[in-house]
Design a protein around this nucleic acid. Structure first.
Length: 747
DNA sequence: AAGATCTGTCATCAC
DNA sequence: TAGTGATGACAGATC
């Protein structure tokens, strides 16, 4: 059951991730439910995170009755609906339960939705607009899929500058990989270079086809987005560009000096696309959770901090205190809040600019992460503002962190991240080999253990041994089984006197044997294993250099037919040479048998069954010395073959172990690569959630229509699933409590 | 000639 | 108990 689960999970997850990366939504949940209900339990388990999110309350609220009676107008309705859709879409972050208890959002009178966006509110219904967003996103994702993987593979073999004297080169390589991943996730230096961004924007624009230009974004919003959307040069990922100007009045509520690069404006959210979203976060999240469940790695926080501490303020380096399956309610109860002017009905989570925190005319909310302690609060019941607005509060923001974003999912991803990190730790501790990663690159999609042999040096053992025991190479526990199988094969071979461990000789390919230059044991072993069969010996002239030719069991007659030229070719003088040659070919026991005039061959002496052997002895009148010699010959002969079998078995065991090690290293490299991808996805999800928070918070208005200051208020997920706007001080207190709880639990 | 490797043999144990 | 297989150890042969 467990193995089946692992197998299915691995395969389906990889396939699903691949599909999702190329823009195809795969509803695994539906598939599993409709077609293979047991598989759902097998793969996901009864407590799976695939539990459908309940949006009933949300929908009910949306469909007419949840709108604040004081602000019932179409714009507000659409705005509210859009925001709620975004909240709904949080489900794809695999937040188990989502409800909206209340929706007390005021429409800011002066806020003109249609003012800056002609198609006010229509963006919600504009499928074309959404698709236009997903279109380039697909391109981005595809490119990321290709470049990302290749880059990861390149990174796996990359050489990083020495970090610590205690670290090995492989450790450094791994750290470098992760560090590059952080950069890829939006921390590129290009963010701070506006001219450079302009170039990349141009390139990005060129990439986009004309269809996109026809979308509903063709107005200011689209241009703004185009100006600010950057595509990572390496990964193809989009990340926010810092907008130098064009900051709306809403930004006054937020200190601009701590703003992260990037704008939140003009972000068409994939969350609004519903099931059409190419970037199915739910899917990825579920995949991630399944993978992590499968891996069940040990948590190692300390090492993880080392691993992810390279980029300052890296969300990955923060502490996560919430279990992955912790219920996270997304009920949006924006009590006492008014919805600000939706001057632009942009969306939050454009795949292209998912990390754009603030938009031109929208609220500019700083997303620079502060010290990690503010991120320790759990997602479910603590201060969200502590996650999103730490800079204003404690002033410890690191401006250089720029794209390093706070971690709205920090708590949510706590254990998951730790598990993943621990996996990385394990990989590092066990000495992940970049060379193996490069090998992995060559056989990226190949799990065949045999392919690895191609990368071995000619002097490697595997050249010939890979073929010698290929039948048992795929099994990790094949040492004993292969030995027994080979023994059985040898028994069938023993009729002709070759009671050898003959698996090698039976499976060895001549070409492969030729390729096994430098490993003479295999040659000689092949010779040994087959020398009892004269035909095999004679057909292998290249084995002549092996001087060991102990035709121990071979009768002189057999040697005649096997090793000597045809009788017609013999000259008179060569008979003596032939006799000498035969004498040399004979073993000591054969010489002794000949000297003692044993009337039958050593082959019979050795290989006959006991009954036949005794019967044979009874046929002749043999002296005591002859009988003793015969028994010694039989004993030595059998022991010789036993020794051969023993050595062969020992060698096979070693080879199987070697192969198992290779397989494990390959699996480790694969898991490591998957982890890197998962971390990337996690980062993206965090950025999206963070953007959503900013959007929601930035649109809140008090009774006077003024935006709430992020330094004074914060959004908080309550335990019942509602989202509350609470004073900052209260939120901080709760955050501290949440920090203590996990510590107490650990104690 | 020395070292490595292969092979046969012996001793021993276990079945 | 004898026969047989497995295996460590040793020594000789060969490269």
């Amino acid at each position: 059951m467990l193995s089946l689960k692992k197998y299915l999970t691995e395969g389906l997850l990889q396939f699903t991730i691949l599909l999702s990366l190329i823009g195809v939504r795969v509803d695994v949940d539906t598939y599993l439910t409709s077609q293979l209900p047991p598989l759902r339990e097998i793969i996901l388990g009864p407590s799976s995170a695939y539990t459908q999110t309940q949006f009933h309350n949300l929908r009910n609220t949306l469909d007419g009755y949840g709108i604040h009676p004081k602000s019932i107008d179409l714009d507000n309705y659409f705005t509210a609906r859009r925001l709620l859709s975004q909240v709904r879409a949080l489900d794809r972050f695999q937040v188990p339960t989502t409800e909206v208890n209340a929706w007390l959002v005021h429409r800011d009178p002066e806020g003109s939705v249609s003012g800056s966006q002609p198609s006010s509110g229509l963006t919600l219904e504009s499928s074309s607009g959404l698709q236009d967003v997903t279109g380039p996103d697909n391109g981005v994702r595809e490119s990321e899929t290709e470049q990302g993987f290749s880059e990861d593979l390149e990174d796996l073999g990359a050489v990083a500058p020495p970090v610590s004297g205690d670290l090995t080169k492989e450790d450094i390589d791994l750290i470098d990989i992760l560090w590059r991943q952080d950069i890829d996730l939006g921390a590129g230096r290009e963010i701070f270079d506006y001219s450079h961004r302009q170039k990349e924007q141009d390139v990005d624009k060129d990439v986009r086809d004309g269809a996109e230009q026809e979308d509903t974004w063709s107005g200011e919003g689209a241009e703004a987005l185009a100006r600010n959307l950057l595509v990572d040069g390496e990964t193809g990922e989009s990340f926010p560009a810092q907008f130098p100007a064009d900051i709306s009045s809403i930004t006054e509520a937020v200190p601009s000096e701590s703003e992260p690069p990037g704008l939140q404006n003009n972000l068409l959210s994939p969350l609004l696309t519903g099931t059409e979203s190419p970037f199915d976060l739910e899917q990825q999240w579920q995949d991630l959770m399944s993978i992590m469940e499968m891996q069940a790695m040990e948590v190692n926080t300390s090492t993880s901090e080392i691993l992810y501490s390279a980029p300052p303020g890296d969300p990955l380096s923060t502490n996560y205190s919430l279990a992955p399956n912790t219920p996270i309610n997304q009920n949006v109860s924006l009590h006492q809040a008014s919805l600000g002017g939706c001057s632009q009905d942009f969306s939050l989570f454009s795949p292209e600019a998912e990390s754009l925190p603030v938009a031109g005319s929208s609220t500019l909310l700083p997303l620079v992460p502060s010290n990690s302690t503010s991120l320790n609060s759990t997602f479910g019941s603590t201060n969200l503002a502590g996650l999103f607005f730490p800079p204003q509060l404690n002033g410890t923001a690191n401006d250089t962190a720029g794209p390093e974003l706070p971690d709205p999912l920090g708590g949510l991803l706590d254990e998951a991240m730790l598990d993943e990190i621990s996996l990385m730790d394990l990989a590092i501790e066990e000495g992940f080999n970049p060379v193996q990663a490069s090998q992995l690159e060559e056989e990226f999609d190949s799990d065949s253990g045999l392919s690895l042999d191609s990368s071995h040096s000619p002097s490697s053992l595997s050249g010939s041994e890979g073929s010698s025991s290929s039948s048992s190479s795929s099994s990790s526990s094949s040492s004993s089984s292969s030995s027994s199988a080979s023994s059985s094969a040898s028994s069938s071979f023993s009729e002709e006197g070759a009671v050898g461990y003959s698996s090698d000789s039976e499976t060895l390919d001549l070409e492969e044997a030729e390729g096994a230059v430098g490993y003479q044991p295999e040659y000689s072993k092949f010779c040994r294993m087959s020398y009892q069969d004269p035909s095999q010996l004679s057909c292998l002239p290249y084995l002549e250099h092996v001087g060991h030719n102990h035709t121990y069991n071979m009768a002189p007659s057999a040697l005649d037919s096997a090793d000597l030229p045809p009788p017609g070719a013999l000259k008179k003088g060569s008979k003596e040479k032939q006799a000498d040659f035969l004498d040399k070919q004979m073993s000591r026991d054969e010489h002794r048998a000949r000297a003692m005039k044993i009337p039958f061959t050593n082959d019979k002496i050795i290989n006959l069954p006991v009954e036949e052997f005794n019967e044979l002895l009874s046929k002749y009148q043999l002296s005591e010395a002859q009988l003793s010699l015969i028994r010694d010959i039989r004993r030595r002969g059998k022991n010789k073959m036993a020794a051969q079998n023993c050595r062969k078995r020992k060698l096979d065991t070693i080879l199987n172990l070697e192969r198992d090690v290779e397989d494990l290293q390959r699996d480790k490299a694969r898991l490591l690569r998957e982890k890197v991808e998962f971390l990337r996805s996690l980062r993206q999800m965090k950025q999206k959630v963070q953007s959503l928070y900013q959007e929601v918070f930035g649109r809140l208005r008090d009774e006077n229509g003024r935006p709430y200051s992020p330094s004074q208020y914060a959004l908080q997920y309550a335990g019942d699933g509602s989202v509350l706007l609470i004073p900052r001080t209260l939120a901080d207190q709760q955050a501290r409590r949440q920090e203590r709880k996990p510590k107490d639990r650990r104690k």
